[in-house]
Every structure is written in C-alpha cells, then in structure tokens.
Design a protein around this nucleic acid. Structure first.
Length: 258
DNA sequence: GGACCACCACCGAC
DNA sequence: CGTCGGTGGTGGTC
C-alpha cells in the first residue's frame, strides 16, 4: 500500500527562546504501530477482500483502503468534472472572525430530497444525487456497511487550494455513523491534530498524524474521532493537479424546506 | 562544506 | 475554519 504513507512528528529539542517545534518523520503506513492490516469485516460485497488498514490513536479510529482501481477512479473523476455543479457567489464565501472570505476551494452539496445541512454557520440544501454520485455512494455502502443520505464535495484545483483545521462536529450528524471520505485526483496530505495538543496551553503533547490520501481511496472516520481530533488539508505548493474529495455523511433531524 | 538566500511549512493571533 | 505574520527548516548555488 505504498501510496498511503503515514507521517508522525517527532519532538525536537527545545531551543532556548523558541517554543517547541517538531519535525515530520515519514514512515510507511503499514510499518507504524498505530496502523495494522485488518480483515475485511465490514460486510463488503466486492469480489476481492478490501485491504483495510486501521489507523488508531487516543480517541482516533479510522480505516483506510483503496476501493477503486486507477481506471475506475480516473473515470469517476472525469464524470464528476462533468456532472458536479459547484457553489458560486455568496454560497462560496465564509465568514471567519468577522471577515468575509472566498473559500479557497470549490464546494457542492448533494443528497436526499429536501435535506439541509448546517456547517460553518451556513445552511445548505442538497442537490439531487447524480448517477455518478449514486454509484460512488453505493460502492461506499458496500465497502462499509453504512448508508449515507448526504455528500459534501470539495474540489481543490491545485496545491494552493486548501482547508483549514476543523472538526465535523455538526449537531445534525448521526453520531454513530462514520464519515466516509473518497479521494479522487491529486494525492494530498491530510493532517489530524488532537484537540488537547493545540495552542499554547494545549500542554498535552500528542503527535499529529499525517496521511497521504491516494486517488481512489476511502478514509473512514469512525466515532469518536471527530470529537477529539481536528483535521485539515494544508497548502502544498508543489501540487499542480486538482483533487476532488467527497465526504459522505448521515444527517439526522432532516428539516423539510418550506 | 559553509555562507547566503529564496522558498515554504507550521502555527498562533485575530 | 479564513488570512496573516513570525519563525525556522530546506535546498539550491557559488
């Protein structure tokens, strides 16, 4: 599974006037002690067992696998490029600390009829599923045994498009259902940081985790990961190709649009 | 190898 | 969950 690499940060010696900084240490995913191969126990119906890799840390529980071949993933990417309609104008802006910004990526929301989803202070309604999105959704269900009624799509046109650190802790997310994240296109780094290891007073020293999310991969973020760990997709200037990410979710308390 | 420099990643502040 | 700035690492070149 050489196209998924986990990196951990090592503590670096404290210098006399600087806060502690840490360096990344790169290692193969399957060699890490927090990561292990596991059997295909997720009720998948693929003809071959899916080689899941477990990613675990304190309060973090993820599963990672390549579920699409390169050819399949290439086709899905192309179809999404043709089908998905991304938000523009006001819907492509966000307000943070009192200032309005254009989000540094493109976003779209699809799902069951009349579903709405609130995140980052804005309420979005779901567009009806497209054929390609239904195909991917059904493949994710077969691979995981979970059903989903909503997908948030983020398109990063190159390594300058990114997403800041956050948790998916929205109230209307089913707390028992994992979030399933499909990656298509350029491989990007994906960083997890424990909430108690952030900031100056975050005196707990829990190492961040770094994943490389490959073309055609599925990352399952199981509870309680989103309670304890922030995640982000940082800028990577060397990446020149686009990446499309689909996060499938289950939303409760579906509010009907009036 | 060392000095220099441009670039880039990290992370706290807001 | 946005940008900005401080800071220090990285890597190319002479």
């Amino acid at each position: 599974m050489k196209n998924c690499v986990l990196q951990r940060r090592n503590k670096r010696l404290r210098t006399k006037n600087s806060p502690e900084r840490r360096d990344w240490k790169r290692m193969k995913l399957e060699d890490d002690d927090g990561i292990q191969e596991e059997d295909d126990t997720k009720g998948g119906e693929f003809s071959h067992p899916i080689p899941w890799q477990k990613i675990e840390a304190e309060g973090l529980d993820c599963d990672y696998a390549l579920i699409f071949s390169k050819k399949e993933a290439d086709e899905l990417f192309q179809h999404l490029e043709e089908e998905v309609v991304y938000s523009t104008g006001e819907e492509a802006k966000v307000q943070v600390y009192g200032k309005v910004y254009n989000i540094p990526r493109k976003q779209a929301t699809y799902g069951d009829t009349d579903l709405t989803y609130k995140y980052s202070g804005v309420t979005r309604s779901a567009c009806p599923w497209t054929p390609t999105l239904e195909n991917i959704r059904d493949a994710v269900t077969k691979a995981t045994g979970h059903t989903f009624n909503f997908v948030l799509i983020n398109r990063y046109k190159d390594g300058l498009d990114h997403m800041g650190e956050h948790r998916d802790d929205e109230k209307e997310l089913d707390p028992a259902c994992p979030i399933a994240s499909i990656s298509l296109g350029a491989e990007r780094d994906f960083i997890f940081r424990h909430r108690d290891a952030r900031g100056r007073n975050g005196s707990r020293q829990i190492e961040p985790l770094k994943l490389e999310l490959a073309h055609g991969s599925l990352l399952l973020m199981n509870p309680p990961t989103n309670t304890f760990w922030y995640h982000s997709l940082p800028v990577r200037r060397k990446i020149l190709q686009p990446r499309i990410n689909l996060t499938f979710r289950r939303i409760l308390n579906c509010k009907k649009l009036k």
